[in-house]
Computed example of a mutant assay.
Amino acid sequence: MKTISAILRARPGAEDTLRAALLDVAAHVAANEPDTVGFFVSQDAADPTRFTTYERFTDESAMDRHNGSEAVARFFRIAQPILDGEVILVTADEISCR
Rank of each mutant, 00 (worst) to 15 (best):
M1N: 10
K2P: 00
T3D: 02
I4L: 12
R9T: 13
R9E: 15
P12Q: 02
P12D: 05
P12W: 06
G13F: 13
A14W: 05
D16Q: 04
D16I: 02
D16W: 02
T17C: 04
R19H: 13
R19Y: 14
R19M: 07
A20P: 02
A21V: 00
L22K: 01
D24V: 03
D24R: 15
V25I: 14
V25R: 00
V25N: 01
V25C: 02
A27V: 04
A27D: 01
A27H: 00
H28S: 05
V29L: 03
A30S: 07
A31D: 14
A31T: 08
N32W: 04
N32F: 07
E33N: 04
D35L: 12
D35G: 12
T36D: 10
V37L: 12
F39C: 03
F40H: 12
S42A: 15
S42G: 15
D44E: 12
D44N: 15
A45W: 11
A46H: 06
D47L: 05
D47T: 09
P48G: 02
T49G: 05
T49S: 10
F51S: 00
F51G: 01
T52P: 10
T53Q: 04
E55S: 08
E55Y: 09
R56E: 06
F57I: 04
F57D: 00
T58C: 11
E60L: 09
A62R: 12
A62G: 10
A62C: 13
A62S: 13
A62V: 11
M63S: 10
D64Q: 15
D64W: 05
R65H: 09
H66K: 09
S69C: 07
E70T: 10
V72S: 06
A73Y: 02
R74Q: 08
R74G: 03
F75W: 12
A79C: 04
A79K: 02
P81I: 05
E86S: 03
D93W: 03
S96N: 01
S96D: 08
S96V: 12
R98Y: 12
R98V: 14
